[in-house]
């Protein structure tokens, strides 16, 4: 069991995390705009998260926290 939290205010919606997630459970929100005007990343299937932190390691903005 793992938990990934995205700080939507810090996220710039670059989408790099979505490209490295081995479980493909990240996507850029289509409905949310943050204060900076970006569509932040969101997790679509937390149950499938394995806590590998690949997303966090590629995030240029340290917007992702991973627990396991």
């Amino acid at each position: 069991m793992a938990k990934t939290t995205i700080n939507a205010d810090r996220c710039k919606g670059c989408g790099l995390c979505t490209t490295v997630c081995p479980k493909k459970i990240l996507q850029l929100s289509k409905t949310v705009l943050n204060a900076k005007g970006y569509n932040p990343a969101e997790i679509i299937d937390m149950d499938s998260c394995i806590g590998c932190a690949m997303c966090a390691k590629t995030c240029p903005d340290c917007a992702i926290t991973v627990e396991k």
């Binding site: 970006y38 806590g51 932190a53 390691k57 240029p60 903005d61 340290c62 926290t65």
Partner: peptide
């Protein structure tokens, strides 16, 4: 916690463009 922002960085949001490697 497996991964969180290091205390070696401040909480200031960077001015770098989305996806810029500087942040990494």
């Amino acid at each position: 916690v497996v991964f969180e922002k290091t205390r070696g960085l401040t909480d200031v949001a960077t001015h770098y463009c989305p996806g810029c490697g500087h942040g990494i």
